[in-house]
Nucleic acid binder design. Sequence first.
DNA 1: TTAAACTTTCAATATTTTCTGAAAATTATG
DNA 2: CATAATTTTCAGAAAATATTGAAAGTTTAA
Lengths: 169, 169
Amino acid sequence: MTLFEAKNLFIEAWGSISSQWGINKTMAQVHALLMISMEEMSTEDIMEKLSVSRGNANMNLRDLINWGLVRKVFKPGERREFFVAEKDVWKIAKQIAKIRKAKELDPVIKLLEQLKDIDVTQEGEDGKQFYKLIVDVHRLTLNLDKLMEAILKADESWFWDRVLKLLVR
Amino acid sequence: MTLFEAKNLFIEAWGSISSQWGINKTMAQVHALLMISMEEMSTEDIMEKLSVSRGNANMNLRDLINWGLVRKVFKPGERREFFVAEKDVWKIAKQIAKIRKAKELDPVIKLLEQLKDIDVTQEGEDGKQFYKLIVDVHRLTLNLDKLMEAILKADESWFWDRVLKLLVR
DNA sequence: TTAAACTTTCAATATTTTCTGAAAATTATG
DNA sequence: CATAATTTTCAGAAAATATTGAAAGTTTAA
């Protein structure tokens, strides 16, 4: 496999896999493209390489910027904007963890905290069982949340050294 | 908030949040409903409670069974099938982790292993940078994979004791 | 200024995903 | 068996999501 083929495969496959990650295909492909390109790219470059419209490219670049995975750069003498992706894989992972925590975990915790308000004393077995479920899920999500927070603060080698030594004997 | 209200809120909210989890609404609601119900439920019961069609109920129940989160039970003297959900939250979490690992992580690892085949010696700086990205992402996903495997084997309190003591001082 | 270069927006369209409901298949019962 | 009860399938409808492309908006520089 040549480098060219490998890069194309990477972009294509990243786009397909993204559907499993709840991320839209163009966004994943733009990200893949920017991660593997040496040079900053213009909107035009991206549109051409991925065969997508200007609107689509623009919107997904904006999302990637909001996710903190891509940033704009200005080239001296150039009027248009260029884009580059963060290349440090640990930083990328932390950024994604942060976003996913906010989207997937925080709303659950918020819901569970509301639900703990029920007056469980008034109800029978049924109420107790429901309350236990809520409390259990709440405890679990809080723990996951703490784990995520720890990841966000951690240095890569420190984190994996600890985790793997202690869990995977 | 009464128990009744709380249960309805839980089902409704679980359905909304599920979109962030890449899970379809009905599936999440059926799961929520079964998790909080004391009694096993028939397809008919579920259709009525959630206002969904027979086909939809049937298909999502099958998916939940395939995910290992729900099982069929047979009642003596009853012809039709009834369904119950696993109630142990740690078991549920492990099951979900297992599925997500298979859907989100394993395909990435497979891709990266293919991509490591490129003949990097032939290429310049560009090839080196690409290779580094592949290797870095590969290492990270393998580590995540090991973490997931550890979770799958672990006992809940043991797992959180270790993780939280070591990461969150 | 103003006009060209470039970016953003958004209504219309296309695509993908989910849901319905009736028909087909399966299973149990007399 | 035959028939009634129940489950499964699946083509088409509906809903949700993603994409286009052209118009509107913004910025730069002559």
